[in-house]
Simulated scan of single mutants.
Amino acid sequence: MQLILQIYRLEKMKIQQKTSYKHNLFLLKILESIARTGSLTNACIENDCEPTTVSRLLSGLEKELGVALLNRSKKPVQLSYFTVSHLPLIRRIIRLTDELYSSAEQAQKTEKRTIRFSLTTSSLSHPILAQIEE
């Protein structure tokens, strides 16, 4: 049973490592919320997430980046000097990502699509051709 649990944990770690970049934007939004609201709890309420999950994900991002993002030695938890000094960049990344998604959404609405279909040769004299032209 222990071997199965160890294999499960290893596989889970592999999956988390492969998908960790997907959490980065979410975590940047959390860091920005902490800066605005003043606490991790308020940031989690604002972003509808669990503080324990966010803390774990932020720890993973800290390991990935090699710098502290939060100062956990103070209560309540505060942003690290690194995070505070990079808040303008964090906000810019969030804004640019929002603009990209907005632009993509707009493109979906306005993008021309090609419709392909085929007709039999006998349908050339059929009234359907008039409807297609319209």
Rank of each mutant, 00 (worst) to 15 (best):
R56A: 07
Q106N: 12
Q2R: 10
R91S: 09
V54K: 01
E64P: 00
P88T: 04
S39V: 02
I4D: 14
Y21K: 12
A68N: 08
T41K: 12
N24H: 07
S80W: 02
M1S: 12
I94H: 02
S118M: 11
K75W: 04
L57N: 11
L119W: 03
E64M: 06
S33C: 10
L100P: 05
Q106K: 15
Y81H: 08
I30R: 03
A35L: 02
T52G: 06
K18T: 13
L89R: 03
P127F: 08
D48Q: 10
I45R: 11
K75R: 12
D48G: 03
Q131L: 14
L28R: 03
S39P: 03
L10N: 13
I128N: 03
L31H: 03
L65E: 00
H23E: 09
L5Y: 13
L57M: 06
R72E: 06
T53A: 08
I34V: 10
L65F: 05
H23V: 05
S85Q: 08
K12V: 08
L119F: 11
L3V: 12
H86S: 06
S80C: 02
I15V: 14
D98F: 05
L124D: 08
I93E: 04
S20E: 13
L124V: 14
E62A: 00
L96F: 10
A104H: 13
T83V: 01
T52K: 12
T52A: 11
Q2F: 11
C44A: 02
L31Y: 01
I45W: 07
P51Q: 06
L27Q: 00
P127H: 09
Q131S: 12
L27G: 00
E99Y: 10
N24I: 07
L40D: 01
C44L: 03
T120S: 15
R91D: 04
S125I: 13
L3R: 14
K22E: 15
R9D: 13
I34Y: 00
G60F: 04
L31C: 05
L31F: 01
S103A: 15
L5S: 14
E64A: 07
L40E: 00
K74F: 00
R36I: 11
E50G: 03
L70M: 05
Y8M: 09
L89T: 08
L25V: 03
K18P: 05
R36H: 08
T110K: 15
L28W: 01
L10C: 11
E99I: 07
